[in-house]
Design a binder for these strands. Sequence first.
DNA 1: CTGTTTGTTTGTCGATCGACCAACAAACCG
DNA 2: CGGTTTGTTGGTCGATCGACAAACAAACAG
Lengths: 208, 208
Amino acid sequence: MATRGRPRTFDPDTALRQALDLFWERGYEGTSLSDLAQAMGIASASIYACFGSKEDLFRQVMALYGTTSGEPPRRALHEHPTTRAAIHAMLRATADEITRPDAPHYCMLILAAPTGAVENRAIQEFLADLRRDMRTAVQDRLARGVADGDLTAPPAALDAIARYYTTVVQGLSVQARDGATRAELEAVITCAMAAWDTLTSAPSRTGA
Amino acid sequence: MATRGRPRTFDPDTALRQALDLFWERGYEGTSLSDLAQAMGIASASIYACFGSKEDLFRQVMALYGTTSGEPPRRALHEHPTTRAAIHAMLRATADEITRPDAPHYCMLILAAPTGAVENRAIQEFLADLRRDMRTAVQDRLARGVADGDLTAPPAALDAIARYYTTVVQGLSVQARDGATRAELEAVITCAMAAWDTLTSAPSRTGA
DNA sequence: CTGTTTGTTTGTCGATCGACCAACAAACCG
DNA sequence: CGGTTTGTTGGTCGATCGACAAACAAACAG
């Protein structure tokens, strides 16, 4: 069962990358199928044949986005020995990604479809789920820090701290979208990390 | 030059409020003129006669939004005696607004049109300008704190601190959008304020 | 009353939306 | 070679988009 029938004239990976670029620039609702077909260099019917519907295509695009742009922040979170360094590096990796000169200056996950028409609600919640996963990843890293012994904080505070740094990441995306430079984001990150010692030393009345 | 011609059968303020509710729920691109006409209880032609185009209507909606939902955070920023209390109160007022049970759980200014189709770029930049005004307002409040003598920080640090707390506000909106409760936002705010003493006491290497 | 002014209703405009079908094209199987 | 399978092209579908024009309705001026 090798290759049967007419072979594809386009590379699905390349086409997916081109779809990613367009969705990234215009968001989910702002990108039409004819725009996509033109950018991908194929007819819209080929999109349906290869990727399914517009919604299916977008989900595949987001998977690609996660393994490319999403990777540096995720890796930063995992690869640094101390929790503090991991969080700091994640913020900086995020800032790097959202100020790259060759791509829109924001995180797709956060701004591609935060609101929209009722018929696109499934996509909005799909992205919301991925964002909640972001927070879970941060929270897991904090828990690992407690296990490693380099972080001491009450379990209730871990929730708050994880949500706090996730909030900063999401705010950074809006800042970059509005024209903040890499250096300006760095200054924000420095401010955000200024809370670290207080959050991880005091008995911390950050409950909820 | 009293009332000439046929009088209006609807109240423009009420209609604008209804348009606000719909734009708030679905964003700019996700809201169609027929949706608006139905929600406002008038024909689409009456929208054009009274408010101009969809874009004009949205700008008027945002003006109303600014004087209603935008007012509590703005007032908090101005009315508290110390800078620290003002920033803290602004964050809490924001959290109050974006978790009200009778409205969508996010700030329209931030999430109604962060990205979108090319033909709507003017609206996206219109909102971006308003968001930059947010940061300017925070920065002005910090400058006032320096003048009042309750805040000591190098001028360069003021930029960073203002952008930092603006970033937190914008991140809070994404958190609320994704289901965070008022209490969870409060915990985030507590974390964000934990940086305050460090930011406003140390010589502060937050340059850029 | 008539004429003017203003607002509303109805209908429609060309364009575009996402989705898909039928016809055609190019590979492999035997 | 013919038959099968798969992909692509061009066309089309009903629905809807934002925007407006024409016709009708209700107030005032005189």
